[in-house]
């Protein structure tokens, strides 16, 4: 897990310009290991990097929403999201993991799986 100190540093260095709810959720996850906040961070980052802002917040969309077909996620959005998530959470995602990402729930599960020691890993 990341420490609160690391989280503050990451917020200052990497989350410049991001919505406040993402930074708050990130800090809460770092300090309380709240997996619901982890979801908020990951989905919030994806939403931020989508080329066209969705009409409805991603958090309110069904988990079966498809990343490419429904949200228009392209390679740039994918890599921006992955690099940011890896940096913030100190994890490494493999190329094969990314190939298998199809839906919002896939993304939530993938990131939660890296914190499987924490409770309630199902989104």
């Amino acid at each position: 897990m990341i420490t609160a100190e690391q989280a503050h540093k990451n917020i200052e260095e990497s989350l410049v310009g991001f919505p406040q709810e993402i930074t708050e959720a990130y800090l809460t996850f770092a300090t309380k290991a709240d997996l619901a906040c982890l979801d908020k961070v990951v989905i919030g980052i994806l939403q931020f990097y989508l080329a066209k802002a969705p009409k409805v917040p991603l958090a309110e969309m069904p988990g079966t929403t498809r990343l490419r077909e429904d949200l228009g996620m392209d390679s740039l959005t994918m890599m921006d999201t992955v690099f940011m998530v890896e940096g913030l959470l100190s994890i490494k995602l493999e190329d094969q993991d990314l190939v298998e990402l199809v839906t919002l729930d896939n993304l939530r599960r993938l990131i939660r799986s890296r914190f499987s020691g924490l409770v309630n890993t199902q989104p």
């Binding site: 410049v16 310009g17 991001f18 931020f48 990097y49 989508l50 080329a51 066209k52 802002a53 740039l76």
Partner: peptide, 23 residues
């Protein structure tokens, strides 16, 4: 100065979508 467009600031009166800024 920010590493990415997300942290850039510009004068009022210009509205750009992230689609136009991200590359």
């Amino acid at each position: 100065h920010a590493a990415t467009w997300a942290g850039w600031l510009w004068p009022h009166g210009y509205n750009f979508s992230r689609d136009s800024l991200r590359t």
